[in-house]
């Protein structure tokens, strides 16, 4: 199966990435090569095989319903590119 240029652009949009003309061409070529390689999985019959998402059995983990201190707002905001008061400031969304 071949990934078209339009599909590369679509995937980039879903990935929230801008691609230059040159990048779109390079990634398109490389993705096709990798996807082409991955296709050989289709030679295995997996019709009766359960998928594995985790190798060890996982259970829901609960903790006691008692309050604990969380990261103070000031600390949480220390790495923010544009903090204001107790908030993260971002470009305007609604005009």
């Amino acid at each position: 199966m071949k990934i078209t240029k339009e599909e590369v652009e679509h995937i980039a949009r879903l990935s929230k990435l801008y691609l230059s003309e040159k990048e779109a061409e390079m990634f398109g070529e490389q993705l096709n090569k990798i996807i082409g390689y991955v296709e050989h999985l289709n030679s295995i019959d997996t019709s009766n095989t359960e998928p594995t998402s985790h190798v060890i059995p996982l259970n829901n983990v609960m903790r006691n319903d008692s309050p604990v201190l969380s990261l103070p707002a000031k600390e949480a905001l220390r790495n923010a590119p544009d903090p204001t008061k107790k908030f993260y400031r971002v470009p305007k969304i609604i005009e």
């Binding site: 990934i3 990798i34 289709n42 998928p51």
Partner: peptide, 30 residues
């Protein structure tokens, strides 16, 4: 990183999920 994000996004995207992601999980079982 961009290449891998796009590859993963493609494998999870609608229409391809069963062909790639689910298939991968099944082969992982094997």
């Amino acid at each position: 990183v961009k290449r891998r994000i796009m590859l993963g996004t493609y494998a999870l995207s609608s229409g391809y999920y069963d062909a790639y992601y689910k298939k991968g999980q099944q082969v992982r079982t094997l």
